[in-house]
Design a protein around this nucleic acid. Structure first.
Lengths: 187, 187
DNA sequence: TGTAGCATGTAAGCCGTTACATGATTGA
DNA sequence: TCAATCATGTAACGGCTTACATGCTACA
């Protein structure tokens, strides 16, 4: 049956699954968003809050998560925990020989570079420099995450994904620098 | 005023601009789609045909392209050419100090890797191997494109973008292989 | 004769965003 | 007391996809 969830649904369900290994009381939508910002963001998307709640409702309807009312005093809150059905659905998805698409890259810088001939080399180099800066920021953010994961055996795979990301950023850095040099030289 | 076109609109307008340097009679929607499949696809998206026609209509409404009826016999066709206003709009966009977003990566393989602990190492390695294969295919497709661009001075920048893509694929290949080895060793 | 490629479109719908709205708690 | 953070949602809309529909032309 392989309930037709979107990739993002599975991604969030996956975060809940990871959480269930180390914590007991589940996550609020708000906390889930924070998890996504720390991890998913780098190689998938970090959905908007509204999207998170929509997905959580969807998962609840499919009965893949349990919802617990965690209101304290008059402060409203719901905590979501992945349940057995949810785990099963995730495993099912993981087991399906994936013909999911190749990574999709949306690279505004490449887009601008394609049209470089329409502007000045200086302007193109400016775009690249700007990109290098943002890249450095992003990399250090990811490095922090990687540091937190450290060597915890439980989090071996998320750590590997983080390493992937770091290597990707490094590669982007190198490519961009090389390109920058080439444009400086040959216009 | 920087007419609020979407990135994809600018991308397609850019393809028309590149085309206008080497050809005279413009492109049909069908041909534009082929251009996008050869270039844009690797670092942006290759919009569906329906999307292409929608964008072309949009560009026509903004008067950034000229539309010529190129029906021959009873075979209907329209050819689109970027006009002066279109060129101006493109230049304007290129000149705007871009705070456009960092590249967005949607990486299904990374997503699955994150949850590797839920399955067997063998299954994860299988996913990586599958990815390596697809990567190789994709790379060779891009290499073909790069070969066609060759050393044409006019197409220097598109060639650079292609080189970027090739380097990216190589980097992905290396990272994936390393990861694969690590999982083989340490599970 | 029929299939692949050329060429153009409409309709329905999903995914995800921004903008908007509400209210509680914590700490400067 | 005011801002930041916690917490949850609704509404409107944009971008893009798939499915569907049409018809011509070249070629095997």
């Amino acid at each position: 049956m392989s309930a037709g969830l979107s990739m993002t649904s599975y991604a969030l369900l996956g975060l809940l699954a990871l959480d269930s290994r180390t914590r007991e009381h589940g996550l609020t939508g708000y906390e889930l968003k924070q998890r996504a910002d720390r991890t998913l963001r780098f190689y998938w998307v970090s959905p908007a809050m509204s999207q998170i709640y929509t997905e959580l409702d969807r998962l609840a309807v499919q009965d893949f998560v349990d919802t617990a009312d965690a209101t304290e005093g008059r402060r409203r809150a719901r905590r979501f925990t992945i349940n057995d059905a949810g785990h099963a659905a995730l495993l099912d998805w993981l087991a399906t020989p994936p013909d999911d698409p190749l990574p999709i890259l949306k690279h505004p810088v490449a887009l601008r570079l394609m049209l470089g001939a329409m502007t000045s080399p200086e302007s193109v180099v400016g775009v690249l420099d700007d990109y290098l800066e943002k890249l450095a920021t992003r990399r250090s953010e990811l490095q922090e995450v990687r540091d937190v994961l450290a060597d915890q055996q439980e989090l071996r795979y998320p750590a590997r994904v983080a390493d992937w990301g770091l290597a990707y950023f490094d590669s982007e850095h190198d490519i961009t620098e090389r390109l920058r040099g080439d444009i400086d030289e040959r216009g």
